[in-house]
Write a protein that binds this DNA or RNA. Structure first.
Length: 451
DNA sequence: CTCTCCCGCCAGCAT
DNA sequence: ATGCTGGCGGGAGAG
């Protein structure tokens, strides 16, 4: 009740409606509940390599394939052990999804078909598909129909995402003239504005909703709903989450921080929770894609995610097959470790350095709030934030005194008007501060080095 | 206890 | 009207 009411209040109109149902439904829905159809042989299992076109996944677990008639004996025998969340995780489902479709002969995917084959509800497929689309692994073609692009599409998608992010940051007005007026009347937390122009190839899902209102370029009323909804889409959230990694040098981000960054500060707590829940979903599938991995922050031990950036698929036997040069010690989602990272040589080879980065990342929000509170001071320096471009190894011979400086050329062009355009005020401002800080730092540096 | 995150209701949009 | 999408948050499993 408390939760329900609390949730209902702050959130959107749709929220309370949902709030009403859950309790009852949830109860019935739980574990190996009844609810009509027997939960099929759960999710998943890595399909045989040369899977026949009609692969039907089986439960990888002890529960046994217990397909139809509810494997009475077995099921009952270990009833309470029968249900395991892990077997139904989005991550596992994603792995199976990929295993099922990542073949040359696959090109279009039907959601129903996928759901059936994987033995899950259609709803879950949407989750998977939305994030996969965000990273370019597939594209929505039509209702119920997606085209498989495969991992080959990832690099391009990431590149695109990164470019878009940088473009947004560089001040090029990305679009949405009418956004804010619209969100105003929606009682909902208008925390996040709306962002990118999203007419990029891969994100036609988004353009779709824009199409039908196309005739009137400035008819705010119409787009509102869908836009508002779109703003919160898993797909967009995925993209923004990824952008976080692509545009900042911070390697590790806790979902908490991510949520805050993506949400802004107006966070209505319940809102934060929701966002974090979504981020968990996203992180799970991104993890199964090996785009990120779970670790923990050096100092806090707080769980966080590290960007790997090398999408690769898992082989049935759980052996990961790299599609591109990947860095060594890989880790499966969920495992923890101390972050040892041999990827970037000297830059962060030092633990302290790393810890410091993390420390800074952890303080982003607080710092940001402080900044907000006292108007826009522009001389604040965000240590941990360095545009990802910086990773580029430079062979250039600059008069670089400090290691950080080595990446300057990469950013030079951005220096001029490094202005974020994230749809939410907080992120926007955050970047703004960062950029301002960086700019002045950069100017100082150039002044001092070149003269 | 907190952290994770599965689950399915149901709103909103497309057909 | 029907069907497709997918936001959402309850609440249970895992730690």
């Amino acid at each position: 009740m408390d939760a329900a009411s609390a949730a209902a209040g702050p959130s959107s109109s749709a929220a309370e409606a949902a709030a009403a149902g859950p309790s009852s439904s949830a109860a019935a829905a739980r574990p190996s509940s009844s609810s009509g159809a027997e939960p099929p042989a759960a999710a998943a299992q890595p399909p045989p390599p040369a899977a026949a076109p009609q692969v039907l996944f089986q439960v990888p677990v002890q529960v046994g394939g217990a397909s139809s008639g509810s494997g009475s004996s077995v099921a009952r025998a270990c009833r309470h052990h029968a249900y395991s969340r892990k077997q139904k995780s989005l991550g596992l489902l994603c792995s199976n999804f990929v295993a099922l479709y990542d073949r040359e002969d696959v090109e279009t995917i039907g959601l129903d078909d996928a759901a059936k084959r994987l033995g899950v509800e259609r709803r879950r497929i949407y989750d998977i598909v939305n994030v996969l689309e965000s990273v370019g692994i597939l594209v929505r073609r039509a209702k119920n129909r997606y085209t498989w692009l495969g991992f080959g599409g990832v690099p391009a998608a990431l590149k695109e995402l990164k470019e878009r992010a940088l473009r947004e940051m560089s001040g090029s007005p990305v679009l949405l003239p009418m956004e804010e007026s619209s969100t105003a009347n929606l009682s909902d937390d208008e925390d996040d504005k709306l962002e990118d122009g999203d007419e990029d190839a891969e994100s036609e899902k988004l353009s779709q909703s824009i199409d039908n209102t196309s005739d009137k370029p400035d008819a705010p009323g119409c787009r509102l709903r869908s836009d508002h909804r779109k703003e919160k889409s898993l797909g967009l959230l995925t993209q923004n989450f990824v952008k976080l990694f692509l545009t900042m040098e911070v390697e590790t981000v806790s979902l908490d921080e991510a949520a805050r960054l993506l949400l802004g500060e107006g966070h209505a707590e319940s809102n934060m929770r929701t966002k974090v829940r979504r981020l968990y979903d996203i992180a799970n599938v991104l993890s199964s894609l090996n785009l990120i991995e779970k670790t923990q922050q050096a100092d806090t031990r707080k769980p966080a995610f590290r960007w790997l950036g090398q999408a690769k698929r898992m082989q049935e036997n759980n052996v990961t097959v790299a599609l591109a040069p990947v860095r060594p010690n890989k880790r499966a989602f969920g495992t923890d470790l101390t972050n040892i990272d041999n990827k970037r040589g000297r830059l962060d080879s030092a633990m302290e350095n790393k810890a410091k980065l993390m420390q800074g990342a952890g303080n982003i929000v607080k710092t940001f709030e402080r900044q907000l509170g006292q108007g826009n001071r522009s001389d604040f320096v965000y240590g941990p934030f360095h545009p990802a471009v910086a990773k580029k190894q430079e062979t250039d011979d600059h008069t670089i005194k400090q290691k950080e400086r080595r990446t300057i050329q990469d950013w030079e062009n951005l220096a001029v008007s490094f202005r974020p355009q994230y749809q939410n005020q907080a992120l926007n401002d955050l970047f703004g501060h960062y950029v301002e800080a960086w700019k002045s730092w950069y100017l100082d540096l150039t002044r001092e080095t070149s003269s």
